[in-house]
Design a protein around this nucleic acid. Structure first.
Lengths: 336, 336
DNA sequence: AGAAATCATGAAAAGGTTTTCAAATCCAAA
DNA sequence: TTTGGATTTGAAAACCTTTTCATGATTTCT
């Protein structure tokens, strides 16, 4: 079996206290014993049991991550950012997919509680009152990632979705487009649905452009097939010259649909996405999009959580990280 | 602070032993006390501390996962499969990115050891002698995922890469192609490099097709930019009519390159990929590819690891799961 | 040299749980 | 009413560490 501190103590012929001290306060033990202990540790390849330590320190150096679905490319970079920050700060990450399902979420939160994680990274879903109540009850540090809450005092890291959508539309308008469509997430999604929709509306209003419900199509879930939405949009608004989609995945799906229907991008229709996932660099044509700094969001979220875990009062509760527009080949200028 | 079993015992006015029994062997405690304890648990919302339990049972119900880089779309489905199987079997997953770096790997293995994970899922990298030695030393159950080892007796789950590559080439040959190129991973990658290359060679030989080193280009790392490789390939072998790439990501990159250079797919060049990642369904054109059952691989790997953890002698050491060819729009028939 | 201060060390408690063991209670049979 | 067996129960040990506390050893100072 695995060697324990006792085995080391026996081999080095000292007490376990001394062994512990060699590891945690080496200066307090006399040289001769120290080397004996160190040799014994080396010989047995002894490594302390993190469970026992966690029990004493009430710290596990483990964080719980909940995300809707890791298959969604959007999360890949976020998690990578989390991972790198965690490594730097000495944490491990337990990652769980919720499928945006309440039961699954609660079940995982319960696991986190039992396993005594030091904090929770809650990614990309809205916070409902009962969610908040549960988080309160667990009484563990939480950081919201790519989501936030206006009702509750929860720390968060995300971009300004409304402004980002606004910027996307403004870019299209500045490029000469007047008849602009949007494929949006459902408005019940208060994070990526409502906000981006509102950005669209604000930009259109600000430039006095006409638009109606017909310019917009909604899809239900994140990875929902955008073909139907695209079809519906073209039926309702056949003469749009540009389409803004609420995610790159939707944009790529849309372009696939357009390709099949012999509609050229960007010659016939300009497409602008949202996220800047890796694939948007190699899509055909390369996708113009609103870039979220996904890696940074994940990275920053872990740092923020760490700050709260270690009791450092942390400056900004709701942190907004900058987005930017990345112009590639899926949009074109319209000269009137 | 979190309520402990002591708090429950005090509130219910019984000993902690009784509380423990109510949770683990309810039939051995008399009804009146049982309800008192249950009420106390409910009132305090008591949940047992998994650290303390782990210390006793020598089980943490946690698995360690190492993967090269979670940003690679190929792993998304594997991890999802792992996750679902883990949930079913009662495990949590600690996920770590190694960047295929030895030091990072060893550091994570060490963490796994200290945190007393029940087993390790080692994904997608070859096993070098010192890796094996380290795994031996840790003395923890391991399952290799999308990789395997012929030298060592390690359980694994993967497809037959050589055969899969062979099938891809055979498909192209059957479609009338004679001059076939390949973009391959480096041959030092014994899992996805050498094997797929060998499948290519075997098929070409079997059909008496001429080919030389000029038909093949190698790229170094998984996500390496394939543009250079494509360029090199066309310089060396300008008249290929079909190209087999060792991954979908490479294929999509290649198609992007071809598009930029006004070479049409599949009219001028057929492209066949490998993996069947989600994006291959919406690429332009939709990608013909060798489908790996990524989700199943992940799922099966966890089941296999579970079997070994619970000491069930498990049938097949090196498990091969079936691949299949998915014909979409990036390849075409050549009529001579 | 002797007293005082410093230093190194091990025993034991603590952290939260399960489990063994012995004591206490119960119930039925004699 | 005993006796005996079965059933419930709690105290204590165990899992592996860290840390406090007291003791013994060493050094420093007068």
């Amino acid at each position: 079996m695995k060697p324990t501190i006792k085995d080391v103590a026996k081999l080095a012929n000292v007490s376990i206290s001394t062994v512990s001290r060699v590891m945690n306060a080496p200066d307090t033990v006399v040289k001769s014993k120290k080397t004996r202990v160190l040799d014994a540790i080396e010989e047995l390849k002894y490594k302390p049991n993190a469970l026992a330590r966690g029990l004493i320190y009430k710290k596990t150096h483990t964080l719980g991550v909940v995300i809707p679905d890791i298959r969604n490319a959007y999360y890949a970079d976020i998690i990578r950012g989390m991972e790198d920050a965690s490594k730097k700060l000495g944490y491990s990450l337990i990652i769980c997919n919720t499928d945006s399902d309440r039961n699954r979420l609660f079940s995982y939160l319960n696991t986190f509680y039992e396993k005594q994680v030091d904090g929770i990274l809650y990614t990309s879903n809205p916070i409902y009152p009962d969610y908040y109540k549960e988080l309160q009850r667990l009484n563990m540090p939480v950081v919201l990632v790519s989501t936030h809450s206006m009702e509750y005092e929860l720390p968060s890291v995300k971009i300004d979705d409304e402004q980002a959508a606004y910027d996307a539309i403004k870019f299209l308008i500045d490029s000469g487009h007047r008849n602009i469509g949007m494929i949006s997430f459902d408005l019940s999604d208060s994070i990526a649905g409502m906000t981006r929709y509102q950005g669209f509306v604000r930009a259109m209003r600000e430039y006095n452009l006409e638009f109606s419900k017909d310019n917009i199509c909604f899809i239900n879930e994140f990875d929902h097939d955008p073909y139907a939405a695209a079809e519906e949009l073209f039926k309702k608004a056949p003469d749009v010259t540009a389409i803004f989609t609420a995610s790159d995945i939707l944009a790529i799906g849309l372009m696939s649909y357009l390709h099949e229907n012999k509609i050229r991008v960007p010659e016939d229709i300009s497409v602008i996405g949202f996220d800047n996932i890796r694939m948007s660099r190699t899509s055909i044509p390369k996708l113009t999009t609103i870039a979220q700094p996904m890696y940074d969001i994940g990275h920053r979220a872990v740092e923020k959580l760490h700050a709260r875990i270690s009791g450092e009062e942390d400056d900004i509760l709701r942190e907004i990280v900058p987005h930017e527009i990345v112009v590639r080949a899926s949009t074109r200028l319209i000269v009137p």
